[in-house]
């Protein structure tokens, strides 16, 4: 790995940062959606929805902006991946729409069939979104067939290979864990106790998948660990990851719910970092023709554009972080249902 702190590398990290922001933020509301159907009463389901009600839309913007940044910084990657994974992404878009609409309309009519339909839509939309994101990441890590013009030559079903599905399921359990911990923060009373139980269980399930994915990756995809073996100090990242997961457990037991959530967020950031370190300097790995891979060198925009974008990000992102923090502070605390609620 030749690491230079140039514009290409900076944008590799910045795009990664945007998608990490997306994983941490939309991750919890997708997780809440994944757990939604396990709650039984109408009131509990409304609490679930309203816990994410004010913020989920803003969370999704991290995906939209991440997509835009990928388009601007690495157009080749944006073009190859989105056209190559055509049906998968169309499916993702449809599930995202359905999920958004389910949140908006679910509580607007009292009929049982109505609410049940949107509950299922919200749940299925959240699960499928998480699964598809994981499957996409799994394929990118595993490598996909690209020709010399960087066009994807595989088909839709080839995307559902065992490794990608494993990463997809791991993503679902990760988001479910993250969502459960978020709900622990946002609920009180009986539902709170239930969420605490679920969170503990979800950490267990996630840990199993996490270990499985790690072992399979080390054995089946040796290229994902080359950078780390060449630069042993990078092992700090997986160590932080494991400590963070253990810390979630510890903080939950002590009833420090917010710290548990921060730990969960930290572990997600570490996971994304492990993925980023493993891939670098590739953005999309081509297999079997490794020479056709998309790297930060052959897929980036011009230095001029990357520089302009850096200025835009330097002005815009601190503002985004500042007012996002303010908005989260406004809506901190336990969920209360009122006349504005979903």
């Amino acid at each position: 790995m030749n690491f230079a702190f140039d514009l290409d590398t900076m944008w590799y990290m910045l795009v990664g940062l945007l998608f990490t922001g997306y994983a941490i933020l939309d991750g919890f509301d997708l997780g809440v959606g994944a757990l939604h159907l396990f709650t039984k009463t109408d009131r509990d389901r409304r609490v679930m929805l309203n816990a994410i009600g004010p913020v989920w839309d803003g969370n999704e913007i991290w995906l939209v902006t991440g997509g835009g940044a990928l388009f601007a910084a690495f157009p080749e990657v944006y073009a190859t991946v989105f056209s190559g994974f055509y049906m998968a992404f169309i499916l993702l878009l449809v599930t995202l729409i359905f999920r958004a609409v389910a949140i908006e309309f679910r509580s607007k009519q009292p009929m049982l069939w109505w609410r049940r339909f949107w509950d299922v839509s919200f749940n299925a939309g959240s699960l499928l979104t998480a699964l598809l994101i994981g499957v996409a990441l799994g394929n990118i890590a595993h490598g996909i067939p690209l020709d010399a013009a960087h066009e994807f030559t595989g088909g839709f079903w080839s995307l559902l290979n065992p490794y990608a599905v494993l990463v997809g399921l791991t993503t679902v359990t990760l988001f479910a864990m993250h969502g459960a911990i978020y709900m622990v923060m946002k609920t009180e009373g009986e539902l709170h106790d239930t969420m605490r139980r679920w969170a503990r269980r979800a950490i267990g399930v996630f840990s199993v998948f996490y270990i499985a994915t790690t072992v399979v990756t080390i054995i089946v995809l040796p290229h994902m660990t080359v950078n780390m073996r060449n630069h042993p100090w990078l092992f700090v990242v997986p160590v932080v990851n494991v400590l963070a997961i253990i810390n979630i457990f510890r903080q939950l037991r002590r009833g420090r719910d917010f710290r548990a959530f921060l730990s969960s967020a930290l572990s997600m950031a570490a996971l994304m970092a492990i993925f980023g370190i493993g891939m670098f300097p590739n953005l999309v790995l081509s297999r079997p023709d490794v020479a056709n891979s998309l790297t930060i060198f052959n897929s980036a925009s011009s230095p001029k554009t990357l520089g302009i974008m850096l200025i835009i990000a330097a002005i815009g992102m601190p503002l985004v972080v500042a007012y996002t923090t303010v908005i989260y502070r406004v809506f901190r605390g336990k969920v209360r249902l009122d006349s504005h609620s979903y």
Binding site: P54, V55, D57, G58, E60, I61, V64, T65, G67, G68, A69, F71, A72, A73, F74, P75, E76, Y78, A79, S301, S302, T305, I308, M309, I312, A313, G316, M317, V320, Y323, T324, I327, V330, F331
Partner: peptide, 24 residues
Amino acid sequence: GDVFGSALAAEGIFAFFLESGFLA
């Protein structure tokens, strides 16, 4: 991408975050 993508990314950073954040 080099041209159009930057305008699209700027839209996300300067507009969408603002709009959907304060909408809450």
